[in-house]
Design a protein around this nucleic acid. Sequence first.
RNA 1: GCGGUCGUAGCUCAAUUGGAUAGAGCAACAGGCUUCGAACCUGUAGGUUGGGGGUUCGAGCCCCUCCGACCGCGCCA
Length: 556
Amino acid sequence: MTEAASPLDDALRAFADAAADTVAAHYSVPAPAIAFEAPRRPEFGDFATNLAFSLAKTARRSPQEIAAELVGELARRAPQLERVFSSVDAVAGFINLRVAPRVWHGAVERILREGDRFGEAPPNGQRISLEFGSANPTGPLVVVQGRSMSVGATLANAMRFRGYDVFVEWIINDAGGQLDALGRSLYARYRQQSSPDYPFPPDGYPGDYLLPIARRIRELDGDRWVSVAESDWLPYFSQFGRDDLVAQQRQTARRFGVVYDRWQSERELHETGKVREGIEHLRGLGLTYESEGALFFRATSFGDDKDRVLLRSDGRPTYFCMDVAYHYKKLKDSDRVVDILGPDHHGYIERLKGMASALGYPGRLEVAIVQQVTLMRGNDQVGMSKRAGEIVALDDIIDEVGVDAARFFFIMPAVESPLAFDLKLALENESENPVYYVQYGHARIAAVLRRALEPDVQAAKSAALDSLVHPAELALARRLAEFPRVVAGVVEHLAPHRLARYARDVASDFHQFYTECRILAEERDLRLARLALSLAAKSVLARTLALAGVSAPDSM
RNA sequence: GCGGUCGUAGCUCAAUUGGAUAGAGCAACAGGCUUCGAACCUGUAGGUUGGGGGUUCGAGCCCCUCCGACCGCGCCA
């Protein structure tokens, strides 16, 4: 299966070919790659190319002159372009193209033909390893993990849609000292059920979420752990707490519509020798040295500001060491490795990238840092001090605003932008809420289609679209035709926020079309054509929302 | 102190990765339903892109330098 070229692609390629020929005939320089962009201002046409600017330097002439000349030559040499472009103008050095309505009609026909698969790319053989959300198994998932999961899951959906073979992993950070702290905290809660004065460890996890787990241990084991040595109860309580909390985290992720291919335990990486394998690989490359009994990685050779410890002087591996082993495996097996990390990992990026270069895969690892989320309720900031144990769990947010609003809000800003998440706004079912705006657009289309006669809806799927000439109709058709490029951009730039924005734009273009054009028009050809456009809009909008993990209701 | 991310309209955010007169939504103001869902649409107003310098045909984006916010800087994870 190959992705068939769209009428739009054909039109642009025809222009690019003709332009390249013209350049070759008139300039003694190789034709630069011709790129098209959509101008911000509609009066500059549907597409523009800066070809003349690229030629200006070597040709030693002004871009304005070159652009005007190219346009004149194109008209002479490639008159067939008139069929697909309604205008080709040279303006201030740019060449502006306006696409003929029939090309947009072709795009709508294609959407109706391909339905859900419009914009999908065939398998490209590229494998992407994606990690996001990962947390310590010491408590419930919190807000920032919600954002990380929304971003990661949306990217995974978009990547798969665009033909990548994606493997999604969650790392369970269960190899470090924090599990001891968890075990001691849980044990204290267990003891406090009969001895309220039993001391809580100072470095423990004070949240209430440990209470039900402690109660369950008491139900299962009674007083069995009261009078045994710590060396006996600690492993048990650590493991019990870890297992229970990981189960809760998985439950939350599932509820949030996020599916992982693997939940990878760090401890398991260690126990199965994967960690040693990674270290040996680095050692074999001569990138380690021993000092003061510890094993160091020469991170400074790869841009980090200091060398990093892999094995402590007592022989235990560091967190970074785990990451080396784990990434070695991922880098070997994938064409592209993407880590989406929390905001406290800024200082970690250089180290990870240095490691990727050291392992022989420079440029294969991409690290995106999801910025902080500030929870607001109207103008009031919602507190989340870990010290006081008052954490706002992701489950609480889902309870309050629902999965749709949460998933949508979390991907609205660019990944590296901070996010102020207003719970009050996310709950409003009024115009100011962007989620409802988009979902309302979908429901409104569904309502019109319900109102139309069924034979008309069927006939619309193969109707002639020549009567679609209104600016609002063409604007909507053009927007829908952008969809494949939008998703490709989301994948390339790790930019899920473009999907949220695009959904907004599609809904907006539809609302305007709806306001200015009566869909259920008296005249049959026009009515069928507008129904066809509505069907296409509904299809693309639903697909866009599905990629973001948001439902597209037919009524609300 | 060193390093990183960021700073865009009153607020929340964009800007197709160096393109044209920096755009949307909310909030404000003024309009639009006897007709397909007004949870919508149209219009007005709102900006020295934190300040300054540089690079070039062209800078919110790249370089330098200040200012400010946040986050890292352990043989923690």
